[in-house]
Design a protein around this nucleic acid. Structure first.
Lengths: 157, 157
DNA sequence: TTACGTGCAAACGTTTTGCACAAAC
DNA sequence: GTTTGTGCAAAACGTTTGCACGTAA
């Protein structure tokens, strides 16, 4: 029997409180969604997913909370190669893989010597371009076609 | 004496024709602008720059042509970490450096062993996440503070 | 009870589109 | 002469804001 209209997952609730945010209904739903799947939702996709789950929230509340959660550091905002805003709940450093067919974006948590993924060739000898800059972050973003889309394309070809 | 209202630079004209595009006034101006400076213009910045040069084009024409030129492969569209569309006329592979203070974006044409820029640490052993994907592109994007902004900040501190 | 969160509707800035006229071929 | 590009104004899009009401502490 569920009498509480707000957070029913203590893990989620605690994560919010630990970051100084009230564990409200909307925030719990958003954070639960982002934590459950290792997927990089767009605001639109979140709106649809929450509605499909039977816990719809208004689009204004969604945006307001995405901003709050990002500021507080509970989630992370970034922009995909298609220019669309995306969010994730992951805190470990990782990079992204973007499917140019379906637009899906997943994590690259990995892998091997970097040179096997990013050829040294694109990074020639001297580094004068970086001189004088204070580098604070670096991000590697891969673009390609996901297994599902490859299969679908092969079938229709 | 300039009687031709369209392209007066043969290099630019030829580049357009080689890509199957008519060398119209607007296209020549856009491509000339992007070729002249090694800068990554936003649509807004291009609109202002063209107007300042005395060769204004309508905002609709600008967007229409940025789309055409990108499709044809004459210029390249990408999205900065701030989510703003940017364009460049460079065809060689290179990466980008984004100043989080002033928003300026410049090329990183370079440099040294990749590991000196992107620590191997962020790329652990196994590569299973990439399994099944057809990787078509990779982009390294650096975020930081440019020399000018560092100096300005140091002065006001 | 007081501060804060929510949802609606309206506003916003950016990008796209429909259409008449003009330029390129 | 036919096809394509241009510019205006209007529309569409994703995101933000003002405000009245509801919820958390």
């Amino acid at each position: 029997m569920k009498t509480d209209m707000s957070c029913n997952d203590d893990r989620i609730r605690e994560r919010l409180v630990a970051h100084g945010l009230r564990p409200t209904r909307a925030r719990c739903r958003i954070l639960a969604l982002l934590s459950a799947r290792r997927e990089h939702f767009t605001p639109e996709a979140m709106y649809d997913a929450l509605r499909a789950e039977g816990t719809p929230i208004s689009i204004a509340t969604l945006y307001q909370n995405l901003a709050k959660l990002s500021e507080a550091g509970v989630i992370r905002r970034f922009v995909g190669p298609d220019g669309v805003n995306r969010y994730d709940a992951v805190t470990e450093p990782h990079h992204h893989l973007f499917c140019e067919v379906c637009g899906r974006m997943v994590d690259v948590l990995a892998k091997g010597p970097l040179s096997s993924v990013v050829p040294e060739a694109v990074f020639p000898e001297d580094r004068s371009d970086l001189a004088g800059w204070k580098i604070k972050g670096r991000k590697v973003e891969f673009t390609g076609v996901c297994p599902a889309c490859q299969a679908r394309l092969a079938r229709s070809a």
